[in-house]
């Protein structure tokens, strides 16, 4: 897959009266054509600034951004406006024009790029149909729910046939059900229209639901970057663990040292591993901690098991795990895993 967006050594410093604020430092990443790329971080980490550096709503302090082979730094304002038309963007607060109907909101980007009124309307109607709001074309934003407003915003962002859709906390103002529907819609657009998607969020469940790869931003830098399933199974950085187990410290007062950690990396998804193990070894285990989830139809996550007292039963269980190629390791004592 070719790279659609490439960011090299990007830095962004905001100059304020009370001194310089470093928003981003040495960011390097490339986003491939056709993928759904997530950027996650706590608020204030710099992720919203990063997405604005991609379409140059924010000027970089240092580094370069390439979009579709063009280096954006070298473009004039006018050329930049043309490039921006190839990038759709949606926002947390939807940012619809309040005095325009849903249809006229979608025709807006077409109007400013000089498409005739009739053609714009035709295109806008077909896009409202894609987002499932064809029947609300003449409604004004104030008459629409949050989810419907975001659908209109999505239709609007698609009007100029963008190559990429930038989503800045697009579901953060929505309830969980609506969030799911909007993410499904974004995934559908990615799949069916082949549009690359960049998702900015502070919620791991958004990443989990639709992203292929993720970059974790912490204190202005990329803390971790990789496939979503990989990061969910083996989070390396503190921030990744914090995001994956929100508020969930791993219990650190297990009795004894006979604990193992089983890692599900999605290979053995449909088999009830623990149940089979208990049945076949006829030995009970105590599940001390479990965090598994469904990512793209595969089960990933971890489980901490307290093994039985009997040495023999333990050996039997470990042998069974090895035989069945289940990924496990001894759980260390102490607080190393608990941050």
């Amino acid at each position: 897959m070719s790279e659609l967006i490439k960011i090299n050594h990007l830095g962004k410093i905001f100059k304020t009266a009370s001194g310089d604020i470093v928003a981003l430092e040495d960011i390097n990443l490339s986003i491939r054509e056709g993928e759904i790329f997530g950027i996650i971080g706590l608020s204030g980490a710099g992720k919203s600034t990063l997405v604005r550096c991609i379409n140059f709503l924010e000027r970089l302090t240092s580094g370069t951004v390439f979009f579709d082979g063009k280096e954006l730094n070298s473009l004039s304002e006018k050329e930049l406006r043309l490039v921006r038309r190839r990038m759709g963007m949606i926002f947390q607060q939807f940012n619809l024009l309040a005095q325009r109907s849903a249809l006229d909101n979608v025709t807006f980007p077409l109007e400013i790029s000089g498409v005739s009124r009739d053609k714009a309307k035709e295109k806008a109607m077909s896009l409202l149909d894609v987002v499932g709001l064809a029947d609300r074309a003449s409604s004004y934003p104030s008459q629409l729910s949050g989810g419907q407003k975001q659908r209109v915003a999505i239709a609007r962002s698609l009007a100029c046939d963008p190559k990429v859709l930038l989503c800045d906390e697009a579901t953060s103002a929505l309830d969980p059900t609506t969030t799911r529907q909007i993410l499904d819609l974004i995934a559908k657009i990615n799949r069916e229209m082949g549009i690359t998607v960049v998702i900015i969020t502070h919620e791991m469940k958004v990443i989990e639901q639709i992203c292929d790869r993720v970059a974790i931003i912490d204190r202005s830098r990329i803390a971790e970057l990789g496939d979503v399933s990989e990061i969910f199974t083996r989070p390396k950085s503190d921030i990744a663990r914090q995001l994956i187990f929100p508020g969930g410290r791993l219990p650190d007062n297990f009795e004894g040292s006979s604990r193992i950690r089983i890692i599900f990396d999605g290979k053995s998804s449909f088999e009830p591993v623990i149940a089979n193990m208990v049945l076949e070894c006829s030995a009970p285990v105590n599940i001390m901690f479990a965090d598994t989830r469904d990512i793209g139809g595969k089960a990933v996550g971890q489980m901490v098991l307290q093994l039985p007292e009997s040495e023999q039963e333990r050996k039997r269980i470990l042998a069974w795990l090895d035989l069945n190629k289940v990924n496990w390791n001894y759980e260390e004592d102490g607080g190393e895993e608990t941050t």
């Binding site: 709503l57 926002f91 619809l96 609007r156 962002s157």
Partner: peptide
């Protein structure tokens, strides 16, 4: 400001 930013992001002059 968000609405103006949205228009800018669409390439409005």
């Amino acid at each position: 400001d968000g609405v103006i930013e949205a228009a800018t992001s669409m390439g409005a002059s």
